[in-house]
Simulated scan of single mutants.
Amino acid sequence: MMHIVLHQPEIPQNTGNIGRTCVATGTSLHLIEPLGFRLGEKELKRAGMDYWDKLSVTRYIDYEDFKAQHPGAKIWYATTKAKRTYAEVSFAMDDYIMFGKESAGIPEEILVENEETCIRIPMLEDIRSLNLSNSVAIVLYEALRQNDFAGLEREGELHRLKWSK
């Protein structure tokens, strides 16, 4: 199982969308406080639709609490400040991918301690960042692709018609 970690997320709609992506991919969601919203907010539930009750979600008091509960975990730190792209690394199915809060990203103190596992999404120089839920989807699906989409449905069925052979 892959793991998505959100460090102090601020926007409930982003977290709801990320939760829905996690449910669709069998990925667990880890939320490091403080959160910029309450988990019961209607925006969070609306973005996550009716999937939120199917989500494996864990909350942590702070980053140190998260680290203490996952000693030895392989953590990738997604940041616009990294030297390597997410496509240049090899993800394993039990890896954690951390994303920072919308307004500031992951604190630089955490990044400098983990320089070798910092990754970025390439984008034009004058663009500050992508939307958080889009960033999670991009990196998560690359990690899943590298692991042959293990456990995920790879073929779909039409509702009324049939695919040709």
Rank of each mutant, 00 (worst) to 15 (best):
S28P: 02
S135V: 05
G40Y: 07
K74G: 07
F99C: 05
R59H: 08
V136K: 02
K45D: 10
G105S: 10
N147F: 04
K42A: 15
S28G: 09
F66W: 07
H70P: 08
N17M: 10
V89P: 08
P34M: 06
K54D: 15
K67W: 04
A73I: 14
F149Q: 00
S129D: 01
W163S: 08
P122F: 01
T25G: 01
E33D: 10
E10Y: 06
A82F: 13
I119A: 00
E155W: 08
Y60M: 07
S103T: 14
E41V: 10
S90T: 13
K165V: 13
K81Y: 05
S133D: 10
K74S: 11
G105F: 12
T15C: 07
K162V: 15
K162L: 14
K54R: 15
L29P: 10
E10V: 12
A104Q: 14
L55E: 07
Y51A: 10
G36M: 03
D94H: 12
Y86A: 03
P107C: 06
S135L: 02
S129W: 06
V136N: 06
A78R: 09
K81P: 02
N114G: 06
N131M: 02
F91M: 07
A24I: 10
R154Y: 07
V5R: 03
E113I: 01
Q8P: 04
T79Y: 04
L44P: 10
L124Y: 11
P71A: 00
Y86F: 15
L55C: 08
D126E: 14
E115S: 13
M123Q: 14
A143P: 00
E10M: 13
V89M: 08
L140T: 01
A143R: 00
H7F: 15
E155A: 13
N14D: 09
Q69S: 14
R46M: 09
L140H: 01
W52A: 12
E153G: 12
T27F: 07
R38C: 08
G156L: 12
A104P: 03
G100P: 04
V5W: 02
T21P: 03
Q69A: 14
E115W: 08
I4S: 02
E142F: 03
P12T: 00
N114K: 05
R145Y: 12
D65I: 01
Y77D: 02
P34S: 04
E153C: 13
V23W: 03
E88L: 08
S135M: 03
P12E: 00
L111S: 05
D95Y: 04
L31H: 05
T25W: 10
Y86N: 08
S164T: 13
P34D: 07
N131Y: 02
E64H: 11
